[in-house]
């Protein structure tokens, strides 16, 4: 016999949407709001910057000027900023476990649900 799902009232539907919204905004927006997210690009400005000291040749200097940056001091932070790519193996392992674990979890639970779907759709065929 086909599975008959329970009826869901309007209030319960609203609660379900609210739960999803809270999860979305909570997981994605909260780290931003708390300043925990983001790639730190650290400027390492040099003293008394000149275009030459910043490694910019004549053509590049013309490009900076065309972009409205005529003073090398104004470009100092942009040119010297670098990402920090040092990472720990622990972080890499945590990431791998999370990603692989997530897909294993979803595929296994999906398979359980899928068997119910196939049984109901095809019956004893």
């Amino acid at each position: 016999m086909a599975y008959q799902p329970p009826r869901q009232g309007l209030a319960a539907q609203i609660i379900d949407v609210a739960v999803l919204l809270v999860m979305t905004v909570g997981a994605l927006y909260l780290p931003l709001y708390l300043g925990l997210a983001g790639a730190a690009k650290n400027p390492q400005p040099i003293d008394n910057p000149t275009w030459e000291a910043l490694g910019q040749n004549a053509a590049e200097q013309a490009q900076w000027q065309a972009l409205g940056i005529t003073d090398p001091a104004a470009a100092n932070d942009i040119i010297t900023a670098r990402f920090d790519y040092s990472f720990s193996w622990a972080a890499l392992i945590i990431m791998a476990v999370l990603v692989i674990g997530y897909f294993v979890l979803v595929v296994r639970l999906s398979d359980k649900e899928y068997r119910e779907v196939i049984d109901e759709r095809f019956g004893g065929q």
């Binding site: 999860m23 994605l28 997210a37 990431m95 999370l98």
Partner: peptide, 15 residues
């Protein structure tokens, strides 16, 4: 992970 690891982890937790 190189630079945006915290976003990756928070997104996985969400899913």
């Amino acid at each position: 992970l190189l630079g945006y690891g915290s976003q990756l982890i928070s997104m996985m937790c969400f899913y």
